[in-house]
């Protein structure tokens, strides 16, 4: 009974959960650990599972919480200052004008259409993984989890002004990385 259920769970859902976690945490070992913890937590609480939502949705809810926990721990590890918050910003000159080297260039694509090439998404994932952990956290929670800024600040225990700087820098850096590695090679 146990053996069967556990095997069924792992076979049906582990890859799905892993593929959800990986682009969010940008580290395969972390993603594996989170999937494992998700199954463990679900298994321990299986008696409380009332079947109001599907097993799959239940597992995803647990995983999402684990991902946010992971970010929260990352913030707690940073005691005094956040990397990615330093005053110097390589993408802008002193007066706040775009730096010549990395200023936005036309991509020559139709912005109304998505890109289908799977190689593009590999580049996107790689660029995202190069963000500072805090920037990646804020960016992911905002644009991939669809959370509100207030909620993100509360979860990560950061001030709104930290939040805006982190989000803004994540976007500027991601844009520049995509441009360099995909659009304008």
């Amino acid at each position: 009974m146990f053996e069967q259920k556990a095997t069924e769970w792992v076979n049906s859902y582990s890859d799905m959960l892993y593929r959800y976690a990986l682009p969010r945490v940008s580290d395969s070992d972390v993603a594996k650990d989170l999937v494992q913890e998700t199954f463990l937590a679900a298994w321990r609480n299986i008696k409380t599972f009332k079947g109001e939502i599907s097993e799959k949705n239940w597992l995803f809810t647990i995983l999402k919480n684990k991902i946010i926990d992971h970010y929260r721990k990352a913030v707690n590890r940073l005691t005094d200052s956040f990397p990615g918050m330093a005053d110097d910003d390589p993408y802008f000159e002193e007066g706040g004008h775009w730096a010549k080297e990395t200023q936005p260039k036309e991509w020559g694509v139709d912005y109304n259409n998505p890109i289908e090439a799977k190689e593009f998404y590999e580049v996107l994932e790689k660029c995202k993984s190069k963000l500072k952990e805090m920037q990646n956290a804020v960016f992911t929670m905002k644009y991939m989890e669809g959370m509100e800024s207030e909620e993100i600040c509360k979860e990560l225990n950061i001030t709104p002004s930290n939040y805006w700087v982190l989000l803004h820098r994540a976007k500027v850096q991601l844009r520049a990385c995509l441009e360099k590695n995909w659009f304008v090679k």
Binding site: K128, Y143, M144
Partner: peptide, 15 residues
């Protein structure tokens, strides 16, 4: 912002 979520569809990693 419109396209970031497509990363999910294209993520082919597996355990």
């Amino acid at each position: 912002k419109d396209n970031i979520c497509k990363v999910d569809e294209h993520c082919k990693g597996c355990l």
